[in-house]
Amino acid sequence: MKCPFCGELEDKVIDSRVSQEGGTIRRRRECVVCGRRFTTYERVEEILPLVVKKDGTRQPFDRQKVLAGVQRACVKRPVTGEMLEELVSDVERLLQESGEKEIPSKAIGEAILERLQPLDDVAYVRFASVYREFRDVGEFLKELSALEGRQAKKG
């Protein structure tokens, strides 16, 4: 595994843990050259459906792209990297279990929103504003009202 700090290819595994659902192994590693530590995740590569974009183009599901999107929505929010990894793994599992060969990007976005909202309302609104492409303040306020209604039902 290549060290993200110095680029060295040699490291030693300090700790390995299997995730709660058993689909991922988290490994804590230490570079033998610079001594810095980093974490890697190991998972079985499974065949996922193609994502059908809004413009009709198709592309392979990109876990890193989804993770980067939810990370941007969670900047300066109390959401851990582990929580986001779990969210993305859950969406990925949903796609695998669907058995579909193609899935609309809209369905993926909705699955992300459904899982993001219980984690953090602000991150939810941030992701929704980009994903749903709000055209004006009215659409944004409508989403906030819907979120407020869901919270009122909970509490």
Rank of each mutant, 00 (worst) to 15 (best):
F5Y: 13
E8W: 01
L9T: 09
L9V: 03
V13Y: 01
S16K: 12
V18G: 01
S19A: 09
Q20H: 08
E21K: 12
G23V: 06
T24S: 11
R26V: 09
R26G: 03
R27P: 11
R27L: 09
R29F: 04
E30K: 10
V33Y: 07
R36L: 10
F38T: 02
F38H: 03
F38R: 03
Y41H: 15
E42K: 05
E45P: 14
E45H: 14
E46S: 13
E46K: 15
L48G: 06
L50P: 05
L50M: 15
L50W: 03
D55C: 08
G56W: 14
G56V: 14
G56H: 13
G56S: 13
Q59W: 06
Q59C: 09
F61K: 10
F61G: 06
D62W: 11
R63L: 07
Q64E: 15
V66N: 04
A68V: 00
G69A: 02
G69L: 02
Q71Y: 07
K76Y: 07
K76F: 04
E82N: 15
E82C: 08
E85L: 15
E86M: 02
L87H: 07
S89C: 13
D90M: 05
D90R: 11
V91C: 10
Q96T: 00
Q96K: 03
G99S: 01
P104D: 14
A111V: 13
I112D: 11
E114Q: 09
R115Y: 02
L116M: 14
L119T: 00
D121G: 08
A123T: 06
R126L: 02
A128Q: 07
Y131L: 13
R132K: 15
F134R: 03
R135E: 15
D136I: 06
V137K: 08
K142D: 06
E143R: 00
S145W: 00
A146L: 10
A146Y: 01
L147D: 00
E148M: 02
K154N: 07
